[in-house]
Design a protein around this nucleic acid. Structure first.
Lengths: 121, 121, 121, 121
DNA sequence: GTGGTCTAGACCACA
DNA sequence: GTGGTCTAGACCACC
């Protein structure tokens, strides 16, 4: 639950929050059932508006990562292993496709790209 | 010079144009000295505002991909091989870093990622 | 008296309880005079706060479904047949109106709607 | 495009807007490609906050009813006939199921329910 | 205490 | 002009 926000980043704050939590849920770092800190707390600690946090939470609930129980808080949603794996694949798949297409349009060949990935990992 | 634009895409139109031309210049598909069609032509054919096209052209000029010669139009800027290679690396680098970080935060290991890349390429 | 509660449902818990008991009283499944289990029992068994249960009970008493006799607990209130029928009609009436309006605004005609109802019943 | 809002209704304003537009799209009253009035206009005419309107629009885009092009406005999304029919069915289906279950738990039989529907339509 | 909704007003990027 | 994001602060319902 180590959230952080970079206000200079061009990606919207609520999206940054979304990505972090979604990743944590998908990687298993946040186990199903885990309660999230209250919106007001997150808001205060990150120095962003409650509405911005809520906006992220809402997206997360919509996409099945969170469950919110009015009056008692938000919790990591249950997710079965196969479903989890599917989502991980989908997510990475999109990123991989984008990168591969990028490389192709720049005239970079497969081996050069693979080499770059090995270096950075 | 096969430009295309998807108005429903969330990435701004001027950015779509920028990316296509920048890629073509970097991959060599557009050779230095090649003249670009007039802004109004591009504007008409793609069905986008001239202001949008001009905005993309300006960014491309600012970043050294294009040169404007008053009265005779825009041309692909000269670029030496080492410079070209540097820019290609910069562009891919950012994308690769993002992907690697994504994979890590999702708990996907290096080999699995490399395998995905091989598949998609 | 098979109460159940789904904390993930968007409808408030106290309302879920209200609906179940009200339905049971109106359908006759809970006969007038039947004693209800103590609030603390219901609270414990369903895993919800006593305040929530009390809140449902209060609404049920206000609407004439329950009677509280101090010191001896809650009981299903007496209800005469015509009154019961009226309430049943009221409840269904609202739901039917909503459905019919929904169907109309979606451009679904009467026969198609009736057919759907027959299928599901 | 006759939107209206009832502030006394317990359902949130943004939801009321959502339902109206979604219905219009599904019934064909709003044809694909039709531009919607600017958020500010809707906001002013209905006397609700821009953010409330945006909230509805956002849900509508998420659910595939609208497309928004930053800088040029919102448009009814393309939808093919079979998909449209599917959505209509889904929507009505949920409402029908709820009603049927309601009727059953109140001890109302099929014929009585059908009769009510016929009356109200 | 919690989350859910709404307002008023602001700034930015895009076309 | 358009939509996209954010803030500060308010009120409500629920637990």
């Amino acid at each position: 639950m180590n959230l952080s926000v970079n206000p200079n980043d061009k990606t919207p704050i609520y999206r940054q929050l979304y990505e972090q939590i979604a990743s944590d849920v998908l990687s298993g770092a946040l186990a199903p059932g885990t309660p999230l800190p209250p919106i007001r707390t997150v808001s205060r600690e990150l120095g962003v508006s409650m509405i911005t946090v809520r906006s992220a939470w809402e997206m997360l609930e919509r996409d099945g990562y969170l469950l919110t129980r009015a009056g008692s808080g938000c919790f990591v949603a249950p997710i079965n292993e196969t479903h989890r794996q599917t989502k991980v694949d989908e997510r990475l798949s999109a990123a991989v496709d984008a990168l591969v297409q990028d490389a192709k349009s720049l005239g970079v060949d497969k081996d050069a790209l693979l080499e770059m990935i090995r270096d950075r990992f």
